Deep mutational scan, measured.
Amino acid sequence: KRPVSAMFIFSEEKRRQLQEERPELSESELTRLLARMWNDLSEKKKAKYKAREAALKAQSER
């Protein structure tokens, strides 16, 4: 099983909040919005998710 990506971790963290704030969005619209949010995120903020990705990857390799 492959470890999850930093973007996937970000998306899972933000998805529920966005669904509550924007219930009119379809699943595909929500996914596009999350992708745009990820792309607009600064490298400094992405680092938090990339660190979690690395930790999960290291854990799965044990």
Rank of each mutant, 00 (worst) to 15 (best):
D40M: 12
L30M: 12
E53D: 07
L25V: 06
K50S: 07
L25M: 14
M7V: 11
L41C: 04
A47V: 08
F8Y: 14
R36D: 15
Q59I: 14
M37R: 06
I9T: 04
A51S: 10
Q59A: 11
A47Y: 07
K45C: 14
S28K: 12
S11E: 13
A51C: 06
E43R: 02
K57D: 09
E61T: 14
K48R: 12
S42E: 07
K44D: 15
S60R: 11
L56N: 06
I9P: 02
S11F: 13
R22N: 14
K48A: 14
E24I: 01
Q17M: 13
D40C: 04
E24A: 08
M7E: 12
E12I: 05
A47C: 06
D40G: 09
R22F: 11
A6I: 00
R52S: 07
A47P: 01
Q59N: 15
S42V: 02
D40N: 03
E13D: 12
K57G: 10
R32Y: 06
P23R: 03
E13S: 06
L34N: 00
K48T: 14
S5G: 13
T31I: 03
E61L: 11
A35T: 15
R62M: 13
M7G: 07
R22Y: 10
K1D: 15
T31R: 10
M37G: 02
E13N: 02
A55T: 11
Y49W: 13
K45A: 12
K14I: 09
S5Q: 08
E12N: 12
E29S: 05
K44I: 06
E24V: 02
K50C: 12
A54F: 05
R32F: 05
R32Q: 11
F10H: 03
A6D: 05
R36V: 12
A47T: 07
F8M: 14
P3T: 15
L34W: 00
M7P: 11
R62Q: 14
E24L: 04
K1S: 03
V4Q: 09
K46E: 01
P3H: 11
Y49Q: 00
S42Q: 03
E21P: 00
A6H: 01
R32H: 15
R62N: 04
R22T: 04
K57P: 09
S26F: 01
M37W: 03
F8H: 12
I9K: 03
S26P: 06
E27H: 02
L18H: 01
S42P: 09
M7K: 14
Q59C: 10
L25C: 07
I9A: 09
L33C: 08
L30Y: 09
T31L: 08
F8Q: 04
Q19T: 07
E53A: 11
K1G: 10
N39M: 10
E29Q: 08
F8R: 14
A6Q: 02
W38Q: 01
P23Q: 03
R22S: 07
S28C: 12
F10Q: 00
L30F: 02
R52A: 05
P3K: 15
L30K: 08
K48L: 08
L41K: 01
L33G: 03
A35I: 14
L25H: 00
K1N: 05
A55F: 15
E24M: 06
A35C: 05
L18E: 01
T31H: 10
P3S: 14
K50I: 15
F8V: 13
P23G: 03
S42D: 14
K57W: 06
R36K: 10
K50Y: 10
R2E: 07
A51R: 13
R16Q: 12
E53G: 07
A6F: 01
S60Q: 12
S5N: 15
A51G: 08
K50W: 07
L30H: 04
L33W: 03
R2Y: 15
S26N: 08
R52L: 08
Q19A: 12
